[in-house]
Amino acid sequence: MKSLKAQQHPLSKIEYELEVLDTPIKGISFADKLANSNLFPLSPTQIDIFQINMGKMCNQVCKHCHVDAGPDRKEIMTRETMQLILEVIKKGGIKTVDLTGGAPEMNPEFRWFIEEIRKISSEVHIIVRCNLTIILANPKYHDLPEFYKKHHIEVVSSLPYFTAVKTDSQRGDGVFDKSIKALKMLNEVGYGAEGTGLQLNLVYNPAGAFLPASQEGLELEFKKRLKNSYDITFNALYTITNLPISRFLEYLLRSENYDSYMEKLLDAYNPVAAANVMCRNTISVGWDGYLYDCDFNQMLELKVASPTSQHIADWNKKSLLEREIIVKQHCFGCTAGAGSSCGGATA
């Protein structure tokens, strides 16, 4: 399977994607809903988290990927851009650095970057969004669990379900078996085990046009099934709602589920989740150093509304804290039901 970009799919054109997403649902926009909750314009509360897209290159081509990542994507972050990020981290205030992609490990500067962050601070919390299969993709990645452990990194990994059929239908043939092997490798070095402090958290997102289950209940089910069937342990399960952009949007339109899915998100709007959306304390950094309110806005190329600080080279915290967060219809994905963020439910 190729990326939408490689297929030259109409949805790989941001203008078209935004045109689809600009249509109000039942005449209601996300901004309207925020206004009803006294949250419009949406403003930041703090900048605690840097979510950094290390590149769009990935060894997998997942059907729902909002990044449209895959082996045919060549956009990756350079060491020069990472240097600029390190300069900002040195200034202090950033509590968490959340590395994502693509497969962030495929960036040749991945390990160097983490080592440099650790030289600056042993306190900064580092998260790597590891797709698991990368650990087995090449012998040069086999020691990643040891590397993560050495730098005390939280590993967050997608596993849509505890069965092969549902996982492979979303993430590709054979992904479940490889993911299980990778989870065992992580468990072997202490990840997911009580008392080690090595956090291994899994991510569930629905394999279709429906909302995620309750995080608490599903976590218990995942823990039971993975322990009983594979002797795998992990710390927490994050449930994440699929946002209607990129490949998931393509699926929704192709399967004629778009309207009903958007109505479902709208009907499930939760003002508590809206108040807790992750864009309020996060800055997303693109592979080319541009700044965004979140990873989704990044993929829609909606740069932060802070004209004097749109690139990491022009970092201006004051200006960023005074910005208005850009919202569109896809934002309903973060406010539906129990809410959704890269750290799971928010309400």
Binding site: V165, P206, P212, A213, S214, G217, E221
Partner: peptide
């Protein structure tokens, strides 16, 4: 059908 899927059940 939708509700069971949203409760995390699978087809089996």
């Amino acid at each position: 059908t939708v509700d069971t899927m949203e409760k995390g059940c699978d087809e089996e």
